[in-house]
Amino acid sequence: MASAIRPERILKELDQLWVSLGQQSEGTGVLRACALTLIVITPDEGADALGETLAKLMREHPSRLVVLRVRPGSEASLTERVLAQCWMPFGSRQQICCEQIEITTTEAGLKDVPAVVRALEAPDLPVVIWTRIHGLLLRTECAPLLQLADKVIVDSQGYPHTREKLAAIRATLPARLVADLEWTRLTRWRHMLSQEFDNPAHLSRLHELQTATIGYDGSFVPMRALYLAGWLRSTLPPHVAITLERSGDAPTPRLHTVTLDGGSLHFHINVEPTRASEMRICSQQAHPPMPALNDDELMREELGVTSRDAAFEASLAYAEEIAA
């Protein structure tokens, strides 16, 4: 029942928290900063491990954090606690703190959550929802929660694409900003490709391209590969044939290569988990660092995107066609 949690009490606790932090700071003071409300939906189990990721995020995107821990259960129940994330910036004597509200709910209690969260939003600032529970936001009881958000961030890594899922993501697009961390993981790939074609010597031969091949490994096409295919479709001339090529049965499907070929142009990126990456364009070769990015790095990028992402929308539309 929602009455188990009174938002005013939470806000009062937050105020008290700031007062006591100020008193503990021995005259150097505590700074509070807030640029948005970030609602993180996560399975209760393992949620503690998320603390470090969130603390890192707060440095770049200071927020009022509402962490919604969801555990299985058919009986509605909500509990809360309030805490602060503080750190001392390098070379400073002053702490910087962000507030965190943690709400634990059973799946059955989810329907009571929107009313509580609505009262807890930091006023006049954008609300972003980051869900770490696959498919949860598509459930009807979450619809009111979704309504609160200016931006929704999902992560479809490890899940097979289905036409329905893509359609569901697309359906929410007109109303709000939607992001998929699988798309964010592609930024580095796309950037490298773009950088090489900043060179007029390569760009002038773009029309020679005939094929684009995306190599992946796994029992289903990872969303990242599909987004990449969609993006290439939306950027390359229409005559270029785009194919997805499977090369193995990795337990976690992954994207490993992209090769553009035609005429005198050859471009290839290969990223293997066990080896240094390799980038080749025509006769040039480089080994740019392509580390797998953590959630905090992906989220830092995503929270920095506050307007419509036309490239993502176009890629999503084509990905849907390709998946069909």
């Binding site: 950037h191 773009s194 060179n199």
Partner: peptide, 20 residues
């Protein structure tokens, strides 16, 4: 001016230095 690079994504890529 040459043709534009279709892979540019100003929303996510920082301003790029051209080869020089």
């Amino acid at each position: 001016m040459g043709p534009n690079n279709p892979f540019h994504d100003p929303l996510r890529f920082e301003r790029q230095v051209k080869p020089c």
